[in-house]
Amino acid sequence: MSLISVKNLETKFDNRLIHEGLNLDIKEGEIYGLLGPSGCGKTTLLREMVMLQKYSRGTIKVLGYDLNTISHNQAQSLRRKWGVLFQAGALFSSLSVAENIALGLQEYTDLNKKMIQEIVAFKINLVGLKQSDGLLFPSQISGGMKKKAALARALALDPKLLFLDEPTSGLDPISAREFDSLILKLHELLGLTIVMVSHDLKSIYDTLDKIAVIDNKKIIYEGSLNNIKNEKSEFIRTFFKANL
């Protein structure tokens, strides 16, 4: 079953064409990567999928909902079914880490306080933070911890779909590999479907099942990593030249 399908997408900023006739299809259980040179519109595409940005033409379907015709209530329930991890974490700075994770649970479920605390403690353990970190505020923790905390927040409502915007950028190589294995582990354990934008070659080889390369407003390659070396595109050749 395909969870996300994008058909004939066109995006225009003023007169600048970002995407034109872009098609892709993301199936359940995949770890799907969006790749491409900077400024090609990867993050824009991700933002369009999570309804943060309007596109000018085409259709995007997420979990069966067509984003062109989605009603307000449907959009709200769709928003509970996915988790989004932003590049810099985007934790709410007035709330502690634990409160950040608990926020969705408090707003959307009728669970009691003790249960919420238990769930929060579990998510904190799951992403590899310490329980005492939950009391800290976002301004008091490091970049890597922010990412982990933001991941825990994204996972709070047990989403089926997880969007990651450059999950390993700004992390040191060791933390980056840890984060990769964390994502793989969560994928395996919780059966998540993951869509990510990444520039990190090691992370791409380690985690992704399927990639889509965007260049020149279109998808120039969609498929597994095995066949990528045979592609003729300039970007793909330079990007994957490093033999890993």
Partner: peptide, 22 residues
């Protein structure tokens, strides 16, 4: 097996120690 895995997973990562109280 899937359900059992989920149960084991949550057990493994659930908070064994007492909660940190601010």
């Amino acid at each position: 097996k899937e359900l059992l895995d989920t149960l084991n997973l949550t057990d493994k990562y659930s908070n064994k120690n007492d909660n940190v109280i601010p």
